[in-house]
């Protein structure tokens, strides 16, 4: 009476209990694996067989700069996200639930709000004549409007905004799993709050930080919408470059080659991340 008496899981040749996965497998196989593999093949066949697309990609200063810029942005975003998320997660992990649930509500609201809506808000907020520049000038902090958009600053703000929930929520779990008694013991052993933080709390939350950080880094690497709207032309990121190469330049070979590079890096980091969290991926929100 295992698994699949409901569906005919024992169709000849199918392993026991696997039948239910068939529709999903067909869907993903036919409409995900096949298109992606076909695309990757194109990188070595379009316009003619060979590795010329990869040569073009790595031989051109422009493209190499895009790669470096992508890694730079992802690294900066990840670092800022970790630094901002940690204290928030810490507070959320120990706060009385009455206050905590308000903050959780805000996090979920921001996370579930349409991506374009949030990015649009930042476009308006960060523009030369936007609220932030006016406020800063009104307070006399700056004379000239600061360039906050169409550059790395804008992308970082916008991306950190989007990534924060993905870092905060799993970190809360990590911090809640740490027994407060451990830190009381540390204090009684003579550790100052700073020593207890550096020697106990931080090392114990490191697996969560690493897993969350890696996830944010991976997501940032391939992000398209926010960099495209808040970033400048001089620091384009990989995803936007791929889209443009295909859409505007109609250079499918080169675009596919870049997509392949992105895919390999992403999947490698993903596997690493899975190792870190032991196969469990936190599903945010609900």
């Amino acid at each position: 009476m295992h698994g699949n008496s409901l569906r005919r899981g024992s169709i000849a040749g199918l392993p026991a209990g696997s039948g239910g996965a068939l529709p999903a497998l067909v869907l993903v196989g036919l409409f995900f694996v096949v298109p992606v593999v076909a695309l990757l093949l194109r990188s070595v066949t379009d316009p003619e067989p060979g590795l010329q697309n990869y040569a073009a990609l790595f031989g051109s200063g422009t493209y190499v700069r895009v790669f470096l810029n992508t890694f730079l942005v992802a690294a900066v975003v990840t670092a800022v996200t970790i630094v901002v998320a940690f204290p928030v997660a810490w507070m959320l992990a120990i706060m009385p639930p009455a206050f905590g649930s308000i903050v959780f509500g805000i996090i979920i609201l921001s996370m579930w709000t349409n991506l374009l809506t949030r990015t649009y808000a930042w476009m308006v907020l960060l523009q030369r004549t936007g609220v932030i520049n006016r406020t800063l000038m009104g307070m006399g902090i700056t004379q000239e409007p600061l360039p906050l958009i169409n550059n790395l600053t804008g992308v970082t703000i916008g991306m950190v905004y989007i990534m924060l929930p993905f870092m905060i929520l799993p970190l809360v779990g990590t911090l809640r799993a740490i027994d407060p008694m451990t830190l009381r013991a540390a204090a009684l052993c003579g550790a100052t709050p700073f020593q207890a933080f550096r020697r106990i709390l931080l090392p114990l939350s490191l697996p969560g930080i690493a897993a969350g950080g890696l996830m944010v880094f991976v997501m940032s690497l391939g992000y398209f919408v926010t960099p495209a709207l808040l970033g400048g032309t001089s620091n384009m990121m990989l995803a936007e470059m791929i889209a443009q190469t295909v859409q505007s330049l109609l250079n499918w070979g080169l675009g596919s080659a870049a997509a392949f590079v992105l895919l390999v890096v992403t999947m490698a980091l993903y596997v690493l991340q899975l190792r870190l969290v032991g196969g469990k991926r936190p599903a945010g929100g609900l």
Partner: peptide, 20 residues
Amino acid sequence: VPSHKRNIGMVFQRYTLFPH
């Protein structure tokens, strides 16, 4: 006096060794 300056030793009911 904050805990960390009290110079008191304590053993807890639950195991509170530093796992790392």
